[in-house]
Design a protein around this nucleic acid. Structure first.
Length: 464
RNA sequence: UCUCCCUUAGCUCAGUUGGUUAGAGCAUCUGACUGUUAAUCAGAGGGUCCAAGGUUCAAGUCCUUGAGGGAGAGCCA
């Protein structure tokens, strides 16, 4: 018979009451009096702690002294209904194994609250807090839900390359990938770096987007998605940017911009609803501790249709609002954060999808509208965090795409394969990118993106 | 990269107009307590006031520079 259980199972298996089992976990707190001690154990499998009741007389004094906050222990005992309030079940300890003590005078985590900034500096230990246990359990469930959503729709999970030889997407500054001895970098006769001698025989970088490769696959498999790490070497110092983050990029053949919007909205609602259904305890904790409106906001997103309007219509709303903006509103300039926030948080009080942006402020691959001025772009704007999804219908017309590439001075040698898909069997298609950590910001109510990824990489910081 | 704010005990923070020996809560340690829930009660220990330089009889406090952190902006997801 199985004797070793996780707290998740203890919480969800009422029939275990009366049984003697073993729990391996870490000590959260200990409360002691002369004859009895109470130890709260947590193994991270679920938000709940398991209270262990210890008859002080039955155990070695030195052992009990080492059962302090942070210690790793295995406790065997009988599960009983709790005499005290605050928990339904508790365990009466028969034996205790101390795997590893945690010296209370140097262990940094205390019973009381710590600031998120301090916990960021001890990212190797912050998993052991209620907050980060909740955040990273939710992160897991969201990743799983993403695969489930697409699998339900028969989308194929595509692994786009992480090392890329093209700098064509222009999504941002890239990290170089090289095998050169940095003290002796080969040069050509005219003094430039000789990439032909490098590992790949050409200049290579870490990917800033898997979209272009995703399109190639979609134009054969019909519907695909990527979900992988993405790298931007921008010197961005904000609570919404990381140098290394995870991105989901679906790409669908035979989808126009409206199909694309429908999918994005369904996708986001599925994920938020999944969290509400499957991460309730963790969400409730985050709601109580950090953001009293969190669960209300999540429920509202699931229930309310997103507002859809064009960039031009949004311009009219902004102009007619009579509101003074730091950056003046004018057709043709990109929307600033303050404009997006006004639309989402003040005017519509709802999630918004904006479409048909001026072509000059959007990427080369977006499908050009007949008006000659706008492209079939779409951005999904969320309360609190702004742009959560950016996407578009792609330009499938070879001549128009080529003209745009020339216009923007993008080198053909990097793009020949992308252009060929428009030469052979080109069809209408669309896609978008969702920043995984931005989704998590929204779902968890955390305010800083560094607190929803285990080990954040930002300018001047790659610790751990 | 720009603007603003912060840096004092392990943690979170007070510290007045520049003025004697820099404080509190929590944590830690010691003791008390028959079932606790951020247990409670009593006591103890704990400081390079971020760094360097400067002004002054006197600097945690004022000035300059630097480092680290945060918020907002730009770039974007």
């Amino acid at each position: 018979m199985k004797a070793k259980y996780r707290i998740l199972e203890v919480v969800n298996t009422p029939s275990l009451v009366g049984k003697t089992i073993t729990i391996n976990a870490w000590v959260r707190t200990k409360r002691e009096s002369k004859n009895v001690a109470f130890v709260a154990l947590n193994d991270g499998t679920v938000f709940d702690n398991l209270q262990v009741v210890i008859d002080v007389q039955k155990f070695d004094e030195e052992l009990l002294k080492n059962i302090s906050t942070g210690a790793g222990v295995g406790v065997t005992g009988k599960l009983v209904e709790s005499q005290g309030k605050g928990q339904a079940l508790e365990m009466v300890a028969d034996s205790i194994v101390l795997y590893g003590p945690a010296d209370p005078t140097t262990y940094p985590l205390q019973k009381k609250g710590h600031s998120l900034e301090f916990l960021r500096e001890i990212a190797h230990l912050r998993f052991r807090t209620n907050t980060f246990g909740a955040v990273f359990r939710i992160r897991h469930h969201m990743a799983f839900a993403i695969h489930q959503f697409f699998d339900n729709k028969s989308f194929k999970y595509l692994h786009a390359p992480i090392i890329t030889g093209s700098d064509a997407e222009g999504a941002g500054e890239m990290f170089h990938v090289t095998n050169f001895d940095l003290d002796h970098i080969p040069r050509t006769e005219d003094g430039k770096i000789n990439f032909s001698e490098d590992f790949f025989g050409k200049e290579t970088n870490l990917t800033v987007s898997g979209q272009l490769e995703g399109e190639l696959a979609a134009l054969a498999l019909s519907e695909i998605y990527t979900f992988g790490p993405t790298f931007r070497a921008e010197n961005s110092n904000t609570s919404r940017h990381l140098a290394e983050f995870w991105m989901i990029e679906p790409e669908m053949a035979f989808y126009d911009i409206t199909d694309n919007m429908d999918l994005a909205e369904e996708f986001l609602k599925y994920l938020v609803n999944y969290a509400l259904q499957n991460c309730r305890k963790d969400l409730q904790f985050l709601n109580d501790m950090y953001d009293k409106e969190l669960i209300n906001r999540l429920e509202r997103v699931v229930q309310t249709p997103f507002v859809r309007l064009t960039y031009s219509q949004a311009m009219d709303v902004l102009l007619q609002s009579g509101k003074k903006f730091e950056f003046p509103v004018k057709w043709g300039v990109d929307l600033q954060s303050e404009h997006e926030r006004f639309l989402v948080e003040e005017h519509f009080k709802n999630s918004v999808i904006l479409t048909d942006y001026p072509r000059e402020i959007k990427a080369f691959y977006m499908k050009q509208n007949d008006d000659g001025k706008t492209v079939k772009a779409m951005d999904v704007l969320f309360p609190q965090i702004g742009e959560i999804i950016g996407g578009s219908q792609r330009e499938e017309d070879y001549d128009k795409l080529l003209a745009r590439i020339n216009e923007m001075g993008i080198p053909h040698k990097d793009m020949w394969w992308y252009l060929e898909t428009r030469k052979f069997g080109s069809v209408p298609h669309s896609g978008f990118g969702l920043g995984f950590e931005r989704l998590l910001l929204f779902v968890t109510g955390m305010k800083n993106i560094r607190d929803v990824i285990p080990f954040p990489r930002t300018p001047q910081n790659a610790e751990f």
